[in-house]
Amino acid sequence: MGFKLLSKLLVYLTASIMAIASPLAFSVDSSGEYPTVSEIPVGEVRLYQIADGVWSHIATQSFDGAVYPSNGLIVRDGDELLLIDTAWGAKNTAALLAEIEKQIGLPVTRAVSTHFHDDRVGGVDVLRAAGVATYASPSTRRLAEVEGNEIPTHSLEGLSSSGDAVRFGPVELFYPGAAHSTDNLIVYVPSASVLYGGCAIYELSRTSAGNVADADLAEWPTSIERIQQHYPEAQFVIPGHGLPGGLDLLKHTTNVVKAHTNRSVVE
């Protein structure tokens, strides 16, 4: 069995187990497998329904001669939608809004960016022009300005110390501490036991640490421990890039980060 097929099978099995364990909360999309990078042309966006009122959005972007996937989250909030992270750029984010209108038909009224990198804030200006209120932590807003990236308009308070959590509509926002970046936030959907790890969490097929220019490698494993301790009931975990899975993604990420750190020390 090929690795790609095995990865998709694991996603399907995880979703099936969740649907059985929580039949009222989960209505997993039966329309197909989780979209992969090879299936999404740059400039297009796919939506994948995880649970009743919960979707991931998947886009792709060219970077350094390669094409990478990027995940975000959409959560229903009454007759409105909360968006977590842009679709990595203005063109993708405009396509995301169009796809949401086509498939869901509810307005996106608020959006949260989970850290300051372009795959999370690139497209904020498109959201703002569409009347979406954009939010991020003060740290993310400051770092985005320093980096020359787009800056969300509103500040999220109460997320300055490791372990801080605040309720934001249908989700809980959690600051686990520094990891992929010093400002990275985690998003949890309690009604569906869905954990969105953003770039602080890796997919299972990833074996290298990737972009760690703004990471705190020493603190990252401790931050992941905080996530595990705060959300032990999480059933569906979405990484910032690639295929979702279960809580095993947290341990896998820790292993990859520690291996990278150990290699760096040896070198």
Rank of each mutant, 00 (worst) to 15 (best):
A130M: 15
T222H: 13
F3Y: 05
E233L: 13
I20T: 06
G169M: 02
Q49E: 07
T140D: 02
E203Q: 14
R142G: 11
L195V: 07
P35G: 10
L96S: 03
F174C: 02
S22R: 09
A98P: 07
E267Q: 06
F168Q: 02
L82M: 15
V121N: 02
Y231L: 04
E80Y: 14
T140M: 02
E150Q: 14
I20V: 09
N211S: 10
H115S: 00
P190D: 09
T86R: 01
L204K: 08
T36Y: 09
T153D: 07
I58D: 03
L10E: 08
Q235T: 13
E33I: 06
L10G: 08
R206Y: 10
M18G: 05
M18N: 15
V75N: 02
A87T: 02
V265N: 05
E233N: 09
L6C: 11
D216W: 11
L204P: 05
W220T: 00
A21T: 14
A129N: 05
I74P: 02
E150F: 06
I58E: 09
A179S: 05
Q235W: 07
A111C: 10
G245M: 02
H180P: 00
F174M: 13
E172S: 07
E145L: 10
S139Q: 10
V121G: 01
L47D: 02
S113D: 04
A165I: 07
L159N: 00
G131S: 09
M1D: 03
P244R: 04
I100A: 09
D64A: 09
Y12L: 14
S181Y: 04
V28S: 06
L195H: 01
K91W: 14
G78W: 11
I50G: 02
A215V: 11
V146S: 13
G32A: 07
P176M: 03
P244W: 06
P69D: 07
S16K: 07
N92R: 11
V124D: 03
S205H: 15
D52F: 10
D119L: 00
G148E: 07
V42M: 14
I58K: 06
A133K: 14
Q61L: 08
S191E: 07
K91N: 09
M1S: 03
A25T: 08
G43E: 09
F26I: 09
E101K: 07
I224H: 01
Y68E: 08
F63N: 07
G246L: 04
P221R: 12
H154S: 13
Q103P: 04
T86S: 14
T140K: 04
G245T: 02
R167D: 09
Y135T: 00
L10K: 06
Q61F: 09
G53T: 15
T93N: 02
S70P: 03
L159M: 12
L47P: 04
T36A: 07
R76V: 10
I201R: 02
Q49D: 07
F26R: 07
G53E: 12
E80T: 12
G198W: 04
L250A: 03
L6I: 06
L249G: 01
L143D: 02
V189W: 00
L243D: 08
E99A: 15
W55R: 01
D164W: 06
L127K: 02
A90T: 11
S137G: 10
T134N: 02
R46G: 12
L247C: 13
S139K: 13
A133S: 09
G2E: 07
